[in-house]
């Protein structure tokens, strides 16, 4: 999937993946897509919950070799 911005938040623990994701999405325009990569397992639940709070859409999620990738479309 194509994204407008890629964020590497691998190796960071709570709450930094959320804080970095928030900062990254602030730089995008509505409808643009942010790709976030994390290794924090808590993010599996936290990123969708965060997206719901802001009305953003999770378009795709995949997990490979311990790296979780989210594609988030800005509201």
């Amino acid at each position: 999937m194509k994204s407008n911005l890629h964020l590497d938040a691998k190796g960071l623990s709570c709450p930094m993946p959320i804080v970095k994701t928030k900062k990254a999405i602030d730089t995008l325009a509505s409808g643009e897509i942010l790709e976030v990569q994390v290794t924090d397992k808590g993010s599996l639940a936290d990123i969708p919950a965060w997206a719901k709070a802001g009305g953003h859409a999770i378009l795709d999620k995949c997990e490979e070799a311990g790296v979780i990738t989210f594609f988030i479309q800005k509201a």
């Binding site: 709570c14 709450p15 959320i18 804080v19 994701t21 928030k22 936290d46 919950a49 965060w50 709070a53 802001g54």
Partner: peptide, 12 residues
């Protein structure tokens, strides 16, 4: 601070 930053990052 974890709860505070997480909440602030979620538009609270």
């Amino acid at each position: 601070f974890n709860i505070a930053t997480a909440a602030a990052a979620s538009e609270k």
